[in-house]
Amino acid sequence: MSPVVAVAVPEDLRALFFPDGVDVALGGLGELRVVSSADEVALGSAEVLAALAGPADVLVTSWPCASVTGPVLDAAPRLRLIAHTGASVKPYVGLDAFARGVRVTQAGAPMARAVGEQALALTLALLHRVHRFDHALRTGVSWADAKAAAPPRHELAGSPVGVVGASRTGRAYVELVRALGGVVTVADPYLSDAEAAALGVGVADLDTVLRGSRVLALHAPVLPETRRMIGARELALLPDDALLVNTARSALIDGDALLAELRAGRIDAAIDVYDEEPLPVDHPLRSLPNVLLTPHEAGGTVEARVRGGRLVAAEIGRFLAGAPLQHEVTDDQLARLG
């Protein structure tokens, strides 16, 4: 009997991940069950997801989906693989899935270049105070005053850049920053001396990196030991006029402490991730001239989405052929994720 592949990805996202059509991308892998246009708006409902996944051997998920746990698993006794089109699977898979022998894979790797490039773009914008000039001119500040009020600007070449986390996105960012002359030091207890040498970076503890960075870029995963790792004490270690770039996870930073530093005007920041998403329209971050905001879209390039779709198709093919998965998430890994 042909395996059943259920695709819980709304039409707009399917067009990004599978631009040649889901039938072309996944049709050769088994019998497809694709969420209907009527049901896709309710994929956050366990009942709707359970109905779609019921006869499936493989379930392809995306970020509107309900978590594959309890009632969804009960409705899908044949389910053997969850292939997530995004990076973080924590909101979409329960540990009970692993207890039932369901395996999980995800498409985070294809986003690394996109996130690295956006982090670089945000770094350059902060260094050149583009965000401050834009805010000033849009709010009616005079041409001369807009220029006079901006803090000193710097080039990336020769700037000390601290990177927290030598993750896939962190390494992509490092490669780009070093290509433009940035001098990089990484805080990551798992980065070996040999790996650091290959990346062309220095290694130091977090406090040392904070004290010495003109730019601090966060690229760490959320684990018990990294949750709120940047608090008031750590932010105070940053030099005056330092620049903070967060395209990783909001849980790495104490949001109240960051807001206090930004309101004081001592540092500037570019932020793509938030404790509350969507960011409320009245959130104080929206009105600060020293803050550059993007709506959690660092990994959302056309190219990254296409690569993600191809990765998912390849992983499903490997699984059905009995070959090892290349991007598997284990129950131990899931349990450690914040």
Rank of each mutant, 00 (worst) to 15 (best):
F319G: 02
G308W: 05
A51I: 01
E11P: 10
L223C: 09
R14V: 12
S2L: 07
V281I: 01
A335D: 14
V164F: 08
G202R: 05
A257G: 08
V203A: 02
A6N: 06
L216C: 00
Q333H: 10
P324C: 15
V291Q: 02
V60M: 12
I230E: 10
P295S: 08
V104F: 04
A269M: 14
A87I: 03
S2F: 01
E315V: 11
L311T: 10
V203S: 03
V306R: 15
L13R: 06
L293I: 13
R227A: 15
A97N: 03
G202M: 04
L279E: 08
L252C: 07
V329G: 01
V72E: 07
L127C: 05
G54K: 13
A50T: 09
W143H: 15
D331M: 03
A236C: 09
A304Q: 10
H154Y: 10
L223T: 11
D23A: 15
V72N: 03
A125H: 13
H131N: 12
L32C: 02
T169Q: 13
L334N: 09
V177P: 02
R153W: 05
H128W: 09
M1E: 11
R100M: 13
D134R: 12
E261Y: 00
L293A: 09
V60I: 13
E31M: 10
A114D: 04
A53Q: 05
A107K: 02
R14T: 07
A38H: 07
L32I: 13
R33P: 12
V58C: 04
G101F: 09
L120Y: 15
R168D: 08
L176Q: 02
V22E: 04
R178Y: 07
T85N: 07
A38T: 13
T208K: 01
A187G: 02
P10S: 15
G27K: 06
D241F: 01
A121P: 02
V215W: 00
L13W: 12
Q118V: 13
Y274C: 02
L223H: 12
A251I: 01
V302W: 06
F17V: 06
A242T: 06
H327S: 10
P284C: 11
V222G: 10
G300A: 14
V164E: 03
G182Y: 04
D268A: 15
A119I: 02
A248E: 11
M1W: 00
L122V: 11
L285C: 06
A232E: 09
E11K: 11
V209Y: 00
V215P: 01
E155D: 14
L223K: 02
L126P: 03
L237Y: 05
V306Y: 05
E31G: 12
D254I: 04
D134H: 11
M229G: 10
R78H: 09
H219D: 04
A150H: 06
A187D: 04
L292R: 11
A172T: 12
F319N: 08
V245T: 00
R286E: 12
A146E: 07
P64N: 03
S36L: 12
R310F: 07
E303Y: 07
L16M: 10
H327Q: 12
V60E: 11
T185L: 07
R211M: 03
S36Y: 08
A121M: 15
V22F: 03
V184H: 03
V174E: 00
F98N: 14
V68E: 11
A144C: 00
L79S: 03
G54Y: 04
S45P: 01
A150Q: 13
R132V: 15
P189S: 09
